[in-house]
Design a protein around this nucleic acid. Structure first.
Length: 360
DNA sequence: AAGACGGGGCT
DNA sequence: AGCCCAGTCTT
């Protein structure tokens, strides 16, 4: 395998590459664990360019963990709106409260305590430990899998238990224990900028002479991943109900997508149906019982919304009613203006944007 | 070990 | 259409 001189020289070269090529990112100019934690949660499964403005807004709105802990969850989710994987925002808020209550507002400084926090797994615990406290824990994220699998020609699937163990061991072996934070950042930046997923320019790579994948033309075959994600079709029929100057919303609960976000009353069906079929469904009949007049205000709005595991076929009907009943009043009554203060999914946001265009 | 969980960018 | 992204949690 590897001998120590090789590993140290690798880290030195890597860090040198980093100093020459690194991007100037706001969370790199601090060792404040709160800022680093926030950036790491935002960047989970998220590209730097997509997360950057969210980081700026969160730090501006909640400069300290105390302020974040005091916030209403709706406010946190609203700020997170559009970023996806909303459990990150819910866990972020819950962990802020934990830090205030259990740690008196001081971010825990041991790897064990950090790892125990909600929303923090092996990767994020290593990142915070090394970046904020310079503890010797090697990060293993998508970048690291890619860099190491190519450099050493490892074809063990990265989404298998044995693969994760092997890459974690290798990453730890390579880690420069004297400066783990710098080493870890260099590793990830190298994966993000040089050893890229697509067409990396290996002629510029400082490690091309010793890279197994490059020398055996395996770059595009590594890393290996076993499972493929398959999509499921879902059919959402939304009812945007207008009564006087209000509309009605519900907060999603239960173990499904968009937990705790708001949306219009929803009738989910097992296949695509027309409006004529929708008004015959039990849910629709119940919802509008004892309502005299139901007027279709706009043409229906139809769109497909893609998530990693679901393809949502969505139809929005905008309806004006002339009276109210006990079923509709169970929903959250809101003005269209206040709607902008509630956290909503990207799908609902797209519909609202289309309404704005129509009414303009 | 396998699924679920978002949204956007790139090929 | 398929894959990936500074992953984590649940089953």
């Amino acid at each position: 395998m590897l001998n120590p001189p090789t590993t140290r020289s690798f880290s030195n070269q890597l860090v040198q590459w980093f100093q020459e090529h690194k991007r100037d990112l706001p969370w790199r100019n601090t060792t404040n664990p709160y800022n680093i934690w926030l950036s790491e949660i935002i960047l989970q499964q998220t590209r730097v360019n997509q997360g950057l403005s969210y980081y700026e807004r969160f730090i501006e709105t909640f400069p300290t963990v105390n302020l974040l802990a005091q916030a209403d969850e709706n406010e946190v989710l609203k700020l997170w709106q559009g970023l996806g994987y909303y459990s990150r925002a819910r866990n972020l808020h819950a962990t802020a409260k934990t830090i205030v209550c259990d740690y008196k507002g001081v971010f825990p400084s041991t790897h064990k305590d950090i790892l125990a926090l909600k929303g923090i797994g092996a990767y994020t615990a290593a990142a915070i430990s090394s970046f904020a406290f310079n503890l010797p824990y090697a990060v293993v994220d998508g970048n690291v899998y890619r860099v190491l699998s190519r450099l050493y020609g490892i074809d063990t699937p990265i989404d298998s238990g044995s693969g994760q163990k092997a890459f974690a061991n290798l990453a730890h072996q390579l880690l420069n224990k004297n400066n783990p934070g710098l080493h870890n950042q260099a590793m990830m930046e190298f994966g993000a900028l040089q050893c890229t997923v697509g067409q990396p320019d290996c002629s510029l790579c400082p490690f091309n002479s010793s890279c197994v994948a490059y020398n055996q033309s395996l770059i595009h075959l590594l890393p290996v991943k076993k499972q493929k994600t398959k999509q499921r079709d879902r059919f959402f029929n939304y009812l945007c109900i207008l009564f006087e100057s209000s509309t009605y919303l519900q907060q999603r609960t239960g173990k499904d997508i968009w937990q705790n976000l708001y949306e219009f009353p929803l009738i989910e069906t097992t296949k695509a149906i027309s409006f004529e079929e929708l008004i015959k469904t039990k849910d629709y009949i119940t919802l509008f019982s004892e309502i005299d007049t139901i007027e279709i205000v706009t043409q229906e709005f139809t769109t497909k919304h893609l998530l990693s595991h679901q393809k949502i076929h969505a139809v929005f009907y905008t309806l004006r009613i002339n009276s109210i009943n006990k079923y509709i009043t169970k929903y959250v009554k809101t003005s269209f203006n206040n709607l902008y203060n509630l956290p909503i999914s990207r799908l609902t946001e797209i519909f609202i944007e289309s309404v704005k265009i129509i009414s303009d």
